[in-house]
Amino acid sequence: MQLFNCPFCGPRDQSEFTYVREAAPVPALDASQATWQAYVYDRDNPRGPHREWWHHNHGCRQILELVRDTLTHEVSSIDAARGSQVTK
């Protein structure tokens, strides 16, 4: 069992959270098809620290941004996911 330290709710069981996806800048609506395709489908998928979005759906219902190690599962940072940068 693992605890995630939600910035709004405090330490909560990981099963309250749902993994959303790898954190990445959201393309602009008029970005090229190749940019959108890469955003929707392609992943860095590293073995090690991974920047990712989780939904605290059984808590504050906020989208959070974590840096979590995919090998050890250790969370090195957790914060509200805000202001995703838009790219063309």
């Binding site: 069992m1 990981q14 099963s15 993994y19 790898e22 073995r47 995919t70 090998l71 599962h73």
Partner: peptide, 13 residues
Amino acid sequence: DFYPSYGQKGNLP
């Protein structure tokens, strides 16, 4: 387990 992992181990839930 529904999250990315290379650890060949799972969680109890």
